[in-house]
C-alpha cells in the first residue's frame, strides 16, 4: 500500500483526537471554598438610615446588609457553606448551621430577607461581648465568623477601663464588617407596636457608662452625690446619634485576630470573605477534553481549509 497522503493523516489525527476528547480526560484541581457564619447586628442603631437603595430612597443599615449579604453569598464559590445568626444585647443567636450555598441559595436568601430588628430580645448593644460570643458560637461548627455591625456600643463603654479578649487570638478566622456612614445620623425610635415615632434624643439614651464602680476622683465630677449620683451628672454627648465606629472595630479585630472590611458592594463583600476566611480546598475535576477537541478541530480546518486556500491562490494567479 502507498504511503498515506497528508489528508488521510489529518483525518486520522482528527479522529484520534476526537476519541481522546470523548473519553473526557480529567485533571484533579482544588478550588477554595469558604465556611462562614454571619452574625448580623439587629440592634436599634442598625435602623439608622444612612444608605441609599437602588431607587435612591434612604435605606436602613439593616436593609443594606440584607440586600448585599444575600448577593455576596451567591458570589461565593459553590461548595462554600453559610450559616446565619443575629446579635443583640450581649449575645448571639444562631438561626441555622452552615449549609451549602449554591443548592440552598433560596433558603439562605429567604432567611436573610427575614431578618428584622423585631427579632431582638433586648435593647442593649454590647458589640464586643457579642463578637466574643459569636466567635464562641462559630467554633463548634468549625466555621469562620463574619460579624456585621456598626460598632455602636449602647450603653457606651467606660473610657477608663480597657477591654480584653480571653480567647485564643486567631483560632477562629473571619472578619468584622463595618456598617454605616461616617457622618453621625439620628436613630429612629419605635413604640411598643413597632411603629416609628421619631428619633432618639440626647436624654433618651445614657451618654456615659454607669456600669461598675464609679471611677476614682468621682467626687470632683459635677453633680456628684455619693448615694444618688456616684458618677456625677450625666454629661452631654452624641450617643443618640450613630456612625460606623471604624477605629473601634479595627481594634476589636486586632484583639481577636479577625480582619476588618467596610460594607461595600456585594462583590467586595465576597472578596473580603475570601481574603479573611480560611480557604477550604475542595477537589474539583477539571475537564481537559477541550484541548484534544480543539486540536481535532484544527486538523479538520487544515484538512478542508488548505485546499480552499490553495484553490483561491491558484485562481488569483490565473487572473493576475
Amino acid at each position: 500500500m502507498k504511503r498515506p497522503d497528508s489528508r488521510t493523516l489529518a483525518l486520522g489525527a482528527a479522529l484520534a483526537l476526537s476519541v481522546a476528547a470523548a473519553l473526557q480526560p480529567e485533571a484533579e484541581a482544588e478550588q477554595p471554598t469558604y465556611d462562614v457564619i454571619a452574625f448580623v447586628d439587629i440592634t436599634g442603631s442598625m435602623n439608622a438610615r444612612d444608605y441609599a437603595a437602588a431607587d435612591g430612597k434612604p435605606q436602613s443599615r439593616l436593609d443594606a446588609v440584607k440586600s448585599r449579604l444575600a448577593t455576596a453569598v451567591g458570589r461565593l464559590p459553590c461548595g462554600s457553606r453559610f450559616g446565619l445568626g443575629v446579635f443583640t444585647e450581649r449575645r448571639v443567636f444562631l438561626l441555622f448551621e452552615p449549609m451549602e450555598t449554591c443548592r440552598n441559595f433560596n433558603a439562605i436568601s429567604g432567611a436573610i430577607a427575614g431578618l428584622d430588628w423585631r427579632m431582638a430580645w433586648e435593647g442593649d448593644s454590647r458589640v464586643s461581648a457579642g463578637l466574643f460570643r459569636a466567635i464562641d458560637a462559630a467554633r463548634p461548627a468549625g466555621a469562620d465568623v463574619m460579624f456585621l455591625t456598626d460598632g455602636q456600643e449602647a450603653p457606651p463603654l467606660r473610657t477608663d477601663m480597657t477591654q480584653s479578649y480571653d480567647g485564643e487570638k486567631g483560632d477562629v478566622r473571619g472578619l468584622i464588617v463595618g456598617v454605616g456612614g461616617t457622618d453621625l445620623v439620628p436613630i429612629p425610635k419605635y413604640n411598643d407596636f413597632g411603629r416609628e415615632v421619631g428619633f432618639f434624643s440626647m436624654d433618651d439614651v445614657p451618654q456615659a457608662s454607669r456600669l461598675g464602680p464609679p471611677p476614682e476622683a468621682a467626687e470632683s465630677l459635677p453633680g456628684y452625690n455619693a448615694r444618688n449620683a456616684p458618677f456625677g451628672e450625666m454629661p452631654a454627648g452624641e450617643e443618640h446619634l450613630t456612625s460606623v465606629k471604624e477605629p473601634y472595630l479595627r481594634e476589636l479585630g486586632e484583639m481577636t485576630g479577625l480582619g476588618y472590611a467596610r460594607l461595600g458592594a456585594p462583590d467586595d463583600l465576597a472578596a473580603a470573605i475570601a481574603a479573611n476566611a480560611r480557604p477550604r480546598p475542595l477537589p474539583v475535576a477539571i475537564d481537559l477534553s477541550p484541548a484534544p477537541a480543539a486540536a481535532a478541530l484544527l486538523a479538520l480546518v487544515a484538512l478542508f481549509g488548505a485546499p480552499l486556500v490553495a484553490r483561491l491562490r491558484r485562481s488569483r494567479q490565473t487572473y493576475a
Binding site: L95, E97, N106
Partner: peptide, 16 residues
Amino acid sequence: MLVTPMTDKHDAIRAA
C-alpha cells in the same frame, strides 16, 4: 424568628 422559609431542600432543613 424566621429561620428558613418554606423549602424542599433537605440540606437546608437539616441545617435549620
